[in-house]
Computed example of a mutant assay.
Amino acid sequence: MTDSERTGSTPGLPPTPPPLPPQAEPTGPQPVPANADEALEIGRNHFREVGSPGGPSGLFVHEFDIGYLIHASWPRPEDPTAPPMELGGSNVVIAKADGEVSFLPNFPPEAAVELYHGTYRPNGA
């Protein structure tokens, strides 16, 4: 079977990827951090272990008016001219009001907070 014979494929274009698996719904209320240390503990669940191969060299918390931004530092590459081994990365924000976890592009903290302010809608809003 050729790509153009597959359902949903268009000749000359790459095949249509399979649908994403359904995301698991939270099994209970999300913890609401009372301070930056608690936010960091929640945020750790969304990054590889600090110091592990491919993992960050450190995690940091940037507290702002409506949340906590968790961002990672990465070790210096052996060859700074080589492309990164893994592309992307993200910041994690934990809302102070309800503990909702959001993912933002790996922008500097101030830019990430500004983006979050423009997109955050509390659960149920």
Rank of each mutant, 00 (worst) to 15 (best):
A97P: 01
G118R: 15
I42N: 00
G51S: 10
N106A: 13
T10Y: 11
G51I: 12
F47S: 00
R121D: 08
S90G: 10
S9T: 13
H117Q: 14
G55I: 11
H71Q: 09
W74G: 02
T81S: 12
T81F: 08
G89C: 03
V92N: 03
P56M: 15
G28A: 06
G8E: 00
P22D: 09
L69E: 03
A82E: 04
T10L: 08
T27K: 15
F107V: 01
R48T: 10
P26D: 06
D79C: 04
E25R: 09
E114R: 15
A111L: 14
D98P: 00
P26I: 02
T7I: 08
P56A: 11
P53V: 14
W74N: 06
F107A: 07
D37P: 02
I94W: 00
A34S: 10
S9E: 02
T7R: 14
S4V: 07
G58E: 11
P80F: 08
D3T: 06
E63V: 14
A97T: 10
P19K: 09
G89S: 03
H62I: 07
G67Q: 03
S57P: 02
G43P: 00
E86G: 01
G54M: 06
Q23P: 04
E38M: 06
F64Q: 08
N45M: 10
G67N: 06
R48S: 15
E41Q: 12
L40S: 02
